[in-house]
């Protein structure tokens, strides 16, 4: 769909485009998950796919994450290319043994004989008043594990490009999407920070070969005064903060890591070397988070280039509250990022 202002494409549609395009060229790919078929997707990501690909390849699973998560691992070992959708990553915890004990270790334990080219994807992160157990962010949990790859796409463009790369990749690939971003892009540029206007957030049209290589961080907004390293939905918090900070004369650079495994530390370090300041933002809890890891790697790579300590902005260290406003307060929101940037650049 093309509007007069450019493309309108929702994040969920970009995910669907990625799966559809890949499924058309690779018969081994199937999509399995709760409500992906007859219901057209709990969040309408897979809308219409059952009609095109049929029930053999678009498989409605009962609510058995251990069962169908592990089924995906077995099918991948056999040679298929499963895409396992978790309605929410919060529901994957019951399948932890399958997705983090089996999937990422199979190649190693079998001495290179059986890999696991499976994709696990679903919604990640709080923000919809779903309460604590439904508000998991799993990048910090899972990026810990060698053998898997993990992406946290922030825009429809990245969602499509990274998911396609992940589907083609021979290793287990975790795609962390966001319920709160699925509808973004419906109104084109209006849904995004002005730094992302002119369709920078959208994938190219009619380009079936468009992929985004894993381990390529993306500078969502160039700047000179401070580097903000972030991922996924917090990228938009950071861009919002960037707009506010620009009015104060602070020109931040927003680096979207895109993938935590592998982590493109070179791009991150390059940015920090230019600015001398770093704020790391992620929506995990602070302790042993991906943000902590990125901060640590910044220290390792840029120690002599830092004019202040690296500051981290995370979810507050509490279970997600239900209260609408308090839940927003808990997130690594733009206000917290603005404060952190001011502080780290000695402008507090």
């Amino acid at each position: 769909m093309v509007s007069t202002n450019g493309r309108t494409l929702q994040y969920r549609e970009a995910l669907r485009e990625a799966m559809e395009e890949e499924m058309r060229i690779d018969e081994r790919i199937f999509l399995m998950g709760e409500e992906v078929g007859e219901y057209n997707g709990a969040y309408k990501v897979s809308q219409g796919m059952l009609e095109e690909f049929g029930p053999r390849r678009i498989v409605d699973s009962p609510i058995s994450e251990t069962g169908f998560g592990g089924l995906g691992v077995g099918a991948a070992m056999y040679g298929l290319r499963p895409i396992i959708e978790f309605m929410s990553w919060s529901f994957c915890l019951v399948a932890a043994d399958q997705i983090i004990n089996n999937a990422p270790k199979m190649l190693y334990m079998s001495g290179g004989q059986f890999g696991c080219p499976a994709v696990f994807r679903g919604n990640n992160g709080a923000g919809g008043q779903l309460g604590s157990t439904h508000s998991w962010v799993v990048e910090s949990l899972f990026s810990h594990v060698p053998g898997l790859k993990l992406a946290v796409p922030s825009t429809p463009r990245d969602a499509k490009g990274l998911l396609k790369a992940g589907i083609r990749d021979p290793d287990p690939f975790f795609n962390l999407e966001s319920e709160r971003m699925l509808g973004m892009g419906l109104h084109g540029d209006k849904d995004y920070s002005r730094y992302q206007h002119a369709n920078k957030w959208a994938p190219p049209e009619n380009d079936k070969d468009f992929i985004i290589e894993l381990c390529k961080a993306d500078i969502k907004k160039p700047g000179t005064d401070c580097t903000i390293v972030t991922d996924g939905r917090p990228v938009h918090f950071a861009l919002e903060a960037a707009e506010a900070l620009e009015e104060e004369g602070i020109d931040v650079e927003v680096v979207d890591v895109r993938t935590y495994r592998p982590l493109d530390i070179e791009t991150i370090a390059g940015s920090v070397r230019r600015t001398g300041y770093a704020v790391v933002v992620d929506q995990s809890w602070p302790f042993a988070s991906v943000g902590a890891e990125v901060a640590s790697q910044i220290y390792e790579h840029c120690f002599d280039d830092l004019d202040n300590q690296v500051l981290r902005v995370h979810n507050d260290d509490i279970p997600a509250p239900y209260s609408r406003q308090r839940e927003q307060d808990m997130l690594p929101n733009a206000k917290k990022i603005v404060d952190a940037v001011r502080s780290v650049t000695y402008n507090a």
Partner: peptide
């Protein structure tokens, strides 16, 4: 832990 894997093997046989 191997039960879902075996199920996946059965699924794959049927799929193929």
């Amino acid at each position: 832990g191997q039960c879902p894997l075996g199920t996946g093997l059965g699924f794959s046989i049927q799929y193929e």
